[in-house]
Simulated scan of single mutants.
Amino acid sequence: MGTQAPLSAASPALAGGAQAVDRALALLAAVGRAPPEGAPLSALAQAAGVAKPTARRLLISLMGAHLVEQDAGTRAYHLGAGAFLLGLRAGRRHDMAEQAADCVARLARDSGDSAFLLVPQGDEVVCLMREEGAYPIRTHALLAGDRNPAGVGAGGIALLAALPPDEAAATLERIAPATAARMGEAAAHLPADVALARERGWALNPGRVVPGSWGVAVPVLWPDGRPAAALTVAAVEARMGPLRQAELVRMMQAEAALIGARLARPLTPGASPAPQPTLRTAKG
Protein backbone atom coordinates (compact mmCIF):
# COMPACT_ATOMS: atom_id res chain seq x y z
CA MET A 1 0.00 0.00 0.00
CA GLY A 2 1.51 3.33 -1.05
CA THR A 3 2.05 6.20 1.32
CA GLN A 4 -0.28 9.17 1.19
CA ALA A 5 1.27 12.34 -0.20
CA PRO A 6 1.43 15.17 2.30
CA LEU A 7 -0.99 18.03 1.84
CA SER A 8 0.60 21.09 0.30
CA ALA A 9 -0.10 24.59 1.53
CA ALA A 10 -2.26 25.17 -1.54
CA SER A 11 -4.20 21.90 -1.30
CA PRO A 12 -8.02 22.06 -1.39
CA ALA A 13 -8.24 20.23 1.95
CA LEU A 14 -6.14 22.82 3.76
CA ALA A 15 -7.90 25.68 2.02
CA GLY A 16 -11.28 24.24 3.03
CA GLY A 17 -10.13 23.80 6.60
CA ALA A 18 -8.94 27.38 6.81
CA GLN A 19 -12.26 28.56 5.38
CA ALA A 20 -14.16 26.59 8.03
CA VAL A 21 -12.04 28.17 10.77
CA ASP A 22 -12.63 31.63 9.34
CA ARG A 23 -16.38 31.03 9.25
CA ALA A 24 -16.44 29.66 12.79
CA LEU A 25 -14.51 32.68 14.05
CA ALA A 26 -16.86 35.02 12.20
CA LEU A 27 -19.82 33.32 13.88
CA LEU A 28 -18.14 33.53 17.29
CA ALA A 29 -17.54 37.24 16.76
CA ALA A 30 -21.18 37.71 15.71
CA VAL A 31 -22.36 35.95 18.87
CA GLY A 32 -20.09 38.24 20.90
CA ARG A 33 -21.67 41.33 19.30
CA ALA A 34 -25.21 40.11 19.93
CA PRO A 35 -27.50 42.03 22.32
CA PRO A 36 -28.04 40.75 25.88
CA GLU A 37 -30.98 38.62 24.75
CA GLY A 38 -28.74 36.78 22.32
CA ALA A 39 -29.13 36.31 18.56
CA PRO A 40 -31.09 33.81 16.44
CA LEU A 41 -29.50 31.52 13.91
CA SER A 42 -30.69 33.57 10.94
CA ALA A 43 -29.11 36.79 12.22
CA LEU A 44 -25.80 35.08 12.98
CA ALA A 45 -25.67 33.39 9.58
CA GLN A 46 -26.30 36.73 7.88
CA ALA A 47 -23.68 38.53 9.98
CA ALA A 48 -21.06 35.86 9.22
CA GLY A 49 -22.00 35.61 5.54
CA VAL A 50 -22.75 31.89 5.59
CA ALA A 51 -25.77 29.73 4.83
CA LYS A 52 -27.97 28.76 7.77
CA PRO A 53 -27.12 25.01 7.60
CA THR A 54 -23.41 25.87 7.65
CA ALA A 55 -23.91 28.30 10.51
CA ARG A 56 -25.84 25.70 12.49
CA ARG A 57 -23.14 23.06 11.96
CA LEU A 58 -20.36 25.41 13.05
CA LEU A 59 -22.34 26.67 16.04
CA ILE A 60 -22.77 23.06 17.21
CA SER A 61 -18.97 22.70 17.12
CA LEU A 62 -18.55 25.95 19.05
CA MET A 63 -21.07 24.73 21.61
CA GLY A 64 -19.08 21.51 21.95
CA ALA A 65 -16.09 23.65 22.88
CA HIS A 66 -18.26 25.63 25.36
CA LEU A 67 -17.52 28.84 23.45
CA VAL A 68 -21.20 29.28 22.54
CA GLU A 69 -24.40 28.19 24.25
CA GLN A 70 -28.05 28.18 23.19
CA ASP A 71 -30.94 29.27 25.36
CA ALA A 72 -33.34 26.32 25.65
CA GLY A 73 -36.37 28.59 25.70
CA THR A 74 -35.67 31.32 23.14
CA ARG A 75 -33.23 29.26 21.01
CA ALA A 76 -31.01 32.35 20.87
CA TYR A 77 -27.25 31.96 20.97
CA HIS A 78 -24.94 33.49 23.60
CA LEU A 79 -21.25 33.33 24.43
CA GLY A 80 -20.50 30.31 26.58
CA ALA A 81 -18.49 29.62 29.69
CA GLY A 82 -15.44 28.72 27.61
CA ALA A 83 -15.42 32.18 26.04
CA PHE A 84 -15.65 33.70 29.51
CA LEU A 85 -12.65 31.70 30.72
CA LEU A 86 -10.63 32.65 27.64
CA GLY A 87 -11.51 36.27 28.25
CA LEU A 88 -10.33 36.05 31.84
CA ARG A 89 -7.02 34.56 30.75
CA ALA A 90 -6.53 37.11 28.00
CA GLY A 91 -7.42 39.86 30.44
CA ARG A 92 -4.26 39.22 32.43
CA ARG A 93 -2.33 40.68 29.51
CA HIS A 94 -4.85 42.62 27.50
CA ASP A 95 -7.20 44.26 29.99
CA MET A 96 -6.23 47.67 28.77
CA ALA A 97 -9.16 49.31 30.52
CA GLU A 98 -7.86 48.18 33.91
CA GLN A 99 -4.33 49.29 33.07
CA ALA A 100 -5.47 52.72 31.89
CA ALA A 101 -8.58 53.58 33.93
CA ASP A 102 -6.87 56.00 36.31
CA CYS A 103 -4.97 57.64 33.44
CA VAL A 104 -8.13 58.30 31.44
CA ALA A 105 -9.87 59.64 34.55
CA ARG A 106 -6.97 62.04 35.23
CA LEU A 107 -7.00 63.29 31.66
CA ALA A 108 -10.71 64.06 31.90
CA ARG A 109 -10.30 65.75 35.28
CA ASP A 110 -7.24 67.80 34.38
CA SER A 111 -8.36 68.80 30.89
CA GLY A 112 -12.01 69.37 31.72
CA ASP A 113 -12.94 67.67 28.44
CA SER A 114 -13.84 64.16 27.30
CA ALA A 115 -11.02 61.59 27.50
CA PHE A 116 -11.00 58.25 25.72
CA LEU A 117 -9.13 54.97 25.52
CA LEU A 118 -9.17 53.24 22.14
CA VAL A 119 -7.70 49.90 21.10
CA PRO A 120 -6.98 48.46 17.64
CA GLN A 121 -8.91 45.41 16.53
CA GLY A 122 -7.98 44.26 13.06
CA ASP A 123 -8.82 47.05 10.64
CA GLU A 124 -11.03 48.75 13.21
CA VAL A 125 -10.62 50.82 16.35
CA VAL A 126 -12.83 50.24 19.40
CA CYS A 127 -13.53 52.81 22.12
CA LEU A 128 -13.06 51.04 25.46
CA MET A 129 -13.55 53.98 27.80
CA ARG A 130 -14.97 57.49 27.86
CA GLU A 131 -14.61 59.81 30.84
CA GLU A 132 -16.29 63.19 31.01
CA GLY A 133 -14.57 66.36 32.17
CA ALA A 134 -16.24 69.25 33.96
CA TYR A 135 -16.50 71.62 30.99
CA PRO A 136 -20.23 71.99 30.25
CA ILE A 137 -19.99 71.92 26.43
CA ARG A 138 -19.05 68.44 25.25
CA THR A 139 -18.62 66.55 22.02
CA HIS A 140 -20.54 63.30 21.66
CA ALA A 141 -18.94 62.09 18.42
CA LEU A 142 -17.49 59.00 20.17
CA LEU A 143 -19.03 56.84 22.88
CA ALA A 144 -17.75 53.84 24.81
CA GLY A 145 -18.32 50.73 22.73
CA ASP A 146 -18.24 52.55 19.39
CA ARG A 147 -16.32 50.83 16.61
CA ASN A 148 -14.89 52.68 13.60
CA PRO A 149 -12.56 51.93 10.69
CA ALA A 150 -8.91 52.47 11.55
CA GLY A 151 -7.90 56.08 10.95
CA VAL A 152 -11.29 57.56 11.85
CA GLY A 153 -10.72 60.18 14.57
CA ALA A 154 -7.56 61.26 16.34
CA GLY A 155 -7.09 57.94 18.14
CA GLY A 156 -7.37 55.97 14.93
CA ILE A 157 -4.84 58.26 13.24
CA ALA A 158 -2.41 57.89 16.16
CA LEU A 159 -2.65 54.09 16.01
CA LEU A 160 -2.00 53.99 12.27
CA ALA A 161 0.91 56.41 12.61
CA ALA A 162 2.52 54.10 15.18
CA LEU A 163 2.63 51.26 12.63
CA PRO A 164 5.47 50.81 10.13
CA PRO A 165 4.72 53.11 7.15
CA ASP A 166 4.17 50.28 4.67
CA GLU A 167 1.76 48.52 7.04
CA ALA A 168 -0.17 51.73 7.66
CA ALA A 169 -0.39 52.40 3.92
CA ALA A 170 -1.69 48.88 3.26
CA THR A 171 -4.30 49.31 5.99
CA LEU A 172 -5.45 52.64 4.57
CA GLU A 173 -5.83 51.07 1.15
CA ARG A 174 -7.85 48.15 2.57
CA ILE A 175 -10.23 50.32 4.54
CA ALA A 176 -10.66 53.09 1.96
CA PRO A 177 -14.31 52.17 1.20
CA ALA A 178 -15.18 52.04 4.93
CA THR A 179 -13.50 55.36 5.75
CA ALA A 180 -15.14 57.03 2.76
CA ALA A 181 -18.54 55.78 3.95
CA ARG A 182 -17.85 57.10 7.47
CA MET A 183 -16.10 60.39 6.65
CA GLY A 184 -17.14 61.29 3.11
CA GLU A 185 -14.71 63.52 1.22
CA ALA A 186 -12.70 64.14 4.41
CA ALA A 187 -11.33 60.58 4.14
CA ALA A 188 -9.00 61.84 1.40
CA HIS A 189 -7.00 63.67 4.10
CA LEU A 190 -6.17 60.49 6.03
CA PRO A 191 -2.82 59.61 4.40
CA ALA A 192 -1.51 63.14 5.05
CA ASP A 193 -2.96 63.15 8.60
CA VAL A 194 -1.22 59.85 9.38
CA ALA A 195 2.09 61.07 7.92
CA LEU A 196 1.92 64.27 10.00
CA ALA A 197 1.10 62.28 13.13
CA ARG A 198 4.07 60.01 12.52
CA GLU A 199 6.35 63.05 12.20
CA ARG A 200 4.98 64.75 15.33
CA GLY A 201 4.44 61.72 17.52
CA TRP A 202 0.81 62.73 18.14
CA ALA A 203 -2.35 62.99 16.05
CA LEU A 204 -4.88 65.73 15.39
CA ASN A 205 -8.43 65.35 14.10
CA PRO A 206 -9.53 68.85 13.07
CA GLY A 207 -13.22 68.07 12.82
CA ARG A 208 -12.88 65.59 9.97
CA VAL A 209 -15.52 63.16 11.28
CA VAL A 210 -18.02 65.55 12.92
CA PRO A 211 -17.63 69.26 12.09
CA GLY A 212 -16.69 71.25 15.18
CA SER A 213 -15.57 68.16 17.14
CA TRP A 214 -11.77 68.14 17.41
CA GLY A 215 -9.47 65.63 19.06
CA VAL A 216 -5.81 65.05 19.85
CA ALA A 217 -4.32 61.64 20.57
CA VAL A 218 -1.10 59.84 21.39
CA PRO A 219 -0.31 56.12 21.03
CA VAL A 220 0.34 53.74 23.90
CA LEU A 221 3.04 51.25 22.90
CA TRP A 222 3.84 47.68 23.77
CA PRO A 223 7.49 47.11 24.76
CA ASP A 224 8.24 46.03 21.18
CA GLY A 225 7.02 49.38 19.86
CA ARG A 226 3.73 48.12 18.41
CA PRO A 227 0.63 50.22 19.17
CA ALA A 228 -1.40 48.84 22.05
CA ALA A 229 -3.94 51.65 22.46
CA ALA A 230 -4.46 55.36 22.01
CA LEU A 231 -5.34 58.08 24.49
CA THR A 232 -7.56 60.83 23.11
CA VAL A 233 -8.98 64.10 24.39
CA ALA A 234 -11.84 65.59 22.39
CA ALA A 235 -13.48 68.97 22.68
CA VAL A 236 -15.31 71.60 20.70
CA GLU A 237 -13.18 73.49 18.19
CA ALA A 238 -13.04 76.66 20.31
CA ARG A 239 -11.09 74.78 22.99
CA MET A 240 -8.54 73.24 20.61
CA GLY A 241 -6.19 76.05 19.65
CA PRO A 242 -2.48 75.30 19.05
CA LEU A 243 -1.33 76.18 22.59
CA ARG A 244 -3.97 73.97 24.16
CA GLN A 245 -3.19 71.13 21.77
CA ALA A 246 0.40 71.26 23.04
CA GLU A 247 -0.76 71.24 26.65
CA LEU A 248 -3.06 68.26 26.10
CA VAL A 249 -0.38 66.31 24.24
CA ARG A 250 2.06 66.76 27.14
CA MET A 251 -0.55 65.44 29.54
CA MET A 252 -1.37 62.45 27.35
CA GLN A 253 2.26 61.57 26.69
CA ALA A 254 2.89 61.36 30.43
CA GLU A 255 -0.10 59.05 30.90
CA ALA A 256 0.83 56.96 27.84
CA ALA A 257 4.34 56.43 29.24
CA LEU A 258 2.82 55.27 32.54
CA ILE A 259 0.54 52.76 30.82
CA GLY A 260 3.42 51.57 28.65
CA ALA A 261 5.50 50.89 31.75
CA ARG A 262 2.65 48.88 33.23
CA LEU A 263 2.35 46.83 30.06
CA ALA A 264 6.07 46.09 30.15
CA ARG A 265 6.19 44.74 33.71
CA PRO A 266 4.40 41.38 33.16
CA LEU A 267 6.75 40.53 30.30
CA THR A 268 9.86 40.48 32.53
CA PRO A 269 8.82 39.92 36.16
CA GLY A 270 11.03 41.72 38.62
CA ALA A 271 12.73 43.80 35.96
CA SER A 272 12.45 47.52 35.46
CA PRO A 273 9.85 48.60 32.90
CA ALA A 274 11.18 48.83 29.38
CA PRO A 275 11.90 52.41 28.35
CA GLN A 276 9.34 53.93 26.03
CA PRO A 277 10.26 55.73 22.82
CA THR A 278 10.48 59.50 23.28
CA LEU A 279 7.68 61.32 21.50
CA ARG A 280 8.27 64.85 20.44
CA THR A 281 6.14 67.33 22.31
CA ALA A 282 3.72 69.49 20.40
CA LYS A 283 4.77 73.05 19.80
CA GLY A 284 2.43 75.94 20.08
Rank of each mutant, 00 (worst) to 15 (best):
L58D: 05
A254L: 05
L243A: 15
A29R: 08
R262F: 14
A186E: 15
P177R: 00
A188M: 12
A162G: 03
D166N: 08
A115C: 02
A254N: 05
S42T: 11
L231S: 04
L118N: 14
G73F: 06
P36V: 11
L27R: 06
L107R: 01
Q4V: 11
R147K: 02
L143W: 15
Y77P: 02
V68D: 01
G82L: 10
T74Y: 12
A15S: 15
T54V: 06
G155V: 01
C103E: 12
P223K: 13
A181H: 11
D193M: 09
V104F: 01
Q253T: 14
A65G: 10
A238Q: 12
L263H: 03
R57Q: 08
H140G: 03
R226H: 14
S11Y: 14
G201S: 00
R200M: 04
A81W: 04
L67H: 06
Q19L: 15
L44G: 03
R182N: 09
A150E: 13
G155C: 05
M96R: 05
A188L: 11
A181M: 15
T281Y: 06
A26S: 10
G32D: 11
E131V: 11
P277I: 08
L231F: 15
R226Q: 14
G49Y: 03
L28E: 01
V194S: 09
L243C: 12
A10N: 15
V218Q: 13
P273K: 08
A254S: 05
R56D: 06
L27P: 01
A55E: 01
G260A: 07
R138W: 07
T268Y: 10
V194G: 05
A188K: 11
V218K: 14
D224G: 03
R262Y: 11
P269G: 04
H66Q: 11
T232M: 12
Q253C: 12
V68P: 00
L221N: 05
L231W: 09
P242W: 15
T3H: 11
P219F: 09
L86H: 12
V218L: 10
L263P: 02
P242K: 15
